[in-house]
Amino acid sequence: MTASNYDEIMQLLCDRLSDLTLSEVEITPESNLIGQLSIDSIKLLNLIMEIEDTFDISVPINALADVQTVRDLVDLIYKIKSAS
Protein backbone atom coordinates (compact mmCIF):
# COMPACT_ATOMS: atom_id res chain seq x y z
CA MET A 1 0.00 0.00 0.00
CA THR A 2 1.48 3.39 -0.91
CA ALA A 3 0.27 6.93 -0.54
CA SER A 4 2.24 10.05 -1.16
CA ASN A 5 -0.15 12.96 -1.17
CA TYR A 6 -1.46 14.59 1.94
CA ASP A 7 -5.12 13.61 1.53
CA GLU A 8 -4.26 9.98 0.91
CA ILE A 9 -2.11 9.88 4.05
CA MET A 10 -4.95 11.48 6.04
CA GLN A 11 -7.46 8.92 4.77
CA LEU A 12 -5.18 5.97 5.45
CA LEU A 13 -4.43 7.15 8.94
CA CYS A 14 -8.08 7.84 9.82
CA ASP A 15 -9.02 4.36 8.62
CA ARG A 16 -6.32 2.76 10.78
CA LEU A 17 -7.20 4.89 13.80
CA SER A 18 -10.83 3.82 13.54
CA ASP A 19 -9.63 0.23 14.06
CA LEU A 20 -7.50 1.17 17.05
CA THR A 21 -9.66 3.61 18.96
CA LEU A 22 -11.96 2.47 21.74
CA SER A 23 -13.85 5.73 21.44
CA GLU A 24 -17.13 6.21 19.56
CA VAL A 25 -16.26 9.78 18.57
CA GLU A 26 -15.89 10.77 14.93
CA ILE A 27 -12.28 10.93 13.82
CA THR A 28 -11.38 14.32 12.38
CA PRO A 29 -8.03 15.96 11.62
CA GLU A 30 -8.36 17.87 14.89
CA SER A 31 -9.08 14.80 17.04
CA ASN A 32 -6.65 14.51 19.93
CA LEU A 33 -4.99 11.09 19.73
CA ILE A 34 -4.78 10.50 23.47
CA GLY A 35 -7.55 12.63 24.92
CA GLN A 36 -10.29 11.88 22.38
CA LEU A 37 -9.27 8.70 20.59
CA SER A 38 -7.75 6.89 23.59
CA ILE A 39 -4.63 5.94 21.65
CA ASP A 40 -2.24 5.08 24.48
CA SER A 41 1.55 5.23 24.21
CA ILE A 42 1.95 1.55 23.29
CA LYS A 43 -0.69 1.72 20.56
CA LEU A 44 0.92 4.87 19.20
CA LEU A 45 4.40 3.29 19.13
CA ASN A 46 3.05 0.25 17.30
CA LEU A 47 1.14 2.49 14.89
CA ILE A 48 4.37 4.30 14.08
CA MET A 49 6.01 1.00 13.13
CA GLU A 50 3.08 0.27 10.81
CA ILE A 51 3.34 3.73 9.29
CA GLU A 52 7.07 3.25 8.68
CA ASP A 53 6.37 0.05 6.76
CA THR A 54 3.39 1.45 4.86
CA PHE A 55 5.29 4.50 3.61
CA ASP A 56 8.80 2.98 3.67
CA ILE A 57 10.12 5.78 5.87
CA SER A 58 11.81 6.14 9.26
CA VAL A 59 9.73 7.97 11.87
CA PRO A 60 11.79 8.65 15.02
CA ILE A 61 9.57 8.20 18.04
CA ASN A 62 11.07 11.29 19.64
CA ALA A 63 9.46 13.31 16.82
CA LEU A 64 6.12 12.40 18.42
CA ALA A 65 6.72 14.89 21.21
CA ASP A 66 5.03 17.55 19.08
CA VAL A 67 2.20 15.30 17.88
CA GLN A 68 -1.16 15.74 19.59
CA THR A 69 -3.78 15.54 16.87
CA VAL A 70 -4.41 13.41 13.80
CA ARG A 71 -3.37 16.37 11.66
CA ASP A 72 -0.08 16.71 13.57
CA LEU A 73 0.70 13.08 12.80
CA VAL A 74 -0.22 13.42 9.12
CA ASP A 75 1.94 16.56 8.91
CA LEU A 76 4.88 14.64 10.34
CA ILE A 77 4.47 11.68 7.99
CA TYR A 78 4.00 13.97 4.97
CA LYS A 79 7.11 15.96 5.87
CA ILE A 80 9.27 12.83 6.26
CA LYS A 81 7.81 11.19 3.16
CA SER A 82 8.36 14.31 1.07
CA ALA A 83 11.98 14.55 2.19
CA SER A 84 12.76 10.90 1.48
Partner: peptide, 10 residues
Amino acid sequence: CILSGADIIR
Protein backbone atom coordinates in the same frame (compact mmCIF):
# COMPACT_ATOMS: atom_id res chain seq x y z
CA CYS B 1 17.70 7.32 24.12
CA ILE B 2 15.29 10.17 24.88
CA LEU B 3 17.94 11.92 26.97
CA SER B 4 20.45 11.60 24.13
CA GLY B 5 18.38 13.53 21.57
CA ALA B 6 19.20 10.91 18.90
CA ASP B 7 16.51 9.68 16.50
CA ILE B 8 14.86 6.63 18.09
CA ILE B 9 13.63 3.86 15.80
CA ARG B 10 12.06 0.69 17.22
